[in-house]
Amino acid sequence: MARKNANSSAPRPTTPDPSSVRPTTPNTEATPNKATPRSTPAPSSSSSSSTGNLKANSSPIDIANAIWEKYQKDTPQRTKLIDVFMGFLVVVGIVQFVYCVLAGNYPFNAFLAGFAATVGQFVLTASLRIQTNPANKTEFSSVSPERAFADFVFGSLTLHFFCVNFIN
């Protein structure tokens, strides 16, 4: 029920708050859009289209398409960059796993270190993404985007220290 609280208080950041005013131009205009669809009565076009899809409940592909469109439209450039990095990590992780399955896991340490590096980096990046998402501002009251990035750097450094130590 913490979720409901977050939803009801989500519309508040529609006024451009200081943290979202950043040098990148698409960010500032994307932020309010991102926040509004979460409130159901909002008359924004994107949200109405997606709810219409879901009410019909006809085909999951339509819903997926709607989500993809909304994602393209609403997501800030910076978050997209993070997403691309996460996608890259997923690909690298899958490649490593496939290699391990096909060619054997002989230096198991090395495989584990490599795989754990991708997984760990993925979750740390996902954490960064969640923390910097303006819609989650109420949950992370004590974590500013800068702090989130510092956490990310700290976590990554620790992770890679252990990976390098483990790789043999």
Partner: peptide, 25 residues
Amino acid sequence: MGRYSGRIYVAYSSWYALGTLASMQ
């Protein structure tokens, strides 16, 4: 309990990813 939140995700993921790798040392 339906109390999932981003905070739990961040805390648990970072703990598990780092902690498990560290414990294997």
